[in-house]
C-alpha cells in the first residue's frame, strides 16, 4: 500500500463529507476510517499524517487525530 494510494483514499473520503462543517467532517472521516480500515492501513495513515508533505488534504489530516489508534502496527 503506497503512501500515495492511502492518502488518495483518505482524501476521497474527505471529499465525500465536503459539505459538513470542519469538526463534523473530521469526525465523519475518522469514523469511516475506523469502521472500514484494517489496523495496518490506519497505522500507515497516522504516520503519514505526522509528516507535512504527504498529499493528505487538511481535513484528512485533521481527522487523523480522531482515528482509533491500532494496538500494534
Amino acid at each position: 500500500m503506497t503512501p500515495d494510494k492511502l492518502a488518495y483514499m483518505a482524501n476521497q473520503i474527505a471529499t465525500a463529507f465536503a459539505r459538513l462543517p470542519d469538526d463534523e467532517a473530521e469526525a465523519a472521516i475518522a469514523a469511516h476510517i475506523d469502521q472500514f480500515w484494517d489496523p495496518r492501513m490506519r497505522a500507515r495513515l497516522l504516520s503519514l499524517a505526522e509528516s507535512p508533505k504527504t498529499g493528505l488534504s487538511d481535513r484528512a489530516r485533521g481527522a487523523a487525530a480522531l482515528i482509533r489508534r491500532p494496538e500494534t502496527a
Binding site: 500500500m1 503506497t2 472500514f36 484494517d38 489496523p39 495496518r40 492501513m41 491500532p70 494496538e71
Partner: peptide, 18 residues
C-alpha cells in the same frame, strides 16, 4: 474487533509483504 482487509487492500498488503 478490528476490521480486516478488503480484497484490494489484501493485494496492496501482499505487495508490501505484510
Amino acid at each position: 474487533d478490528e476490521p480486516g482487509l478488503r480484497i484490494p487492500n489484501m493485494l496492496d498488503a501482499a505487495v508490501d509483504g505484510s
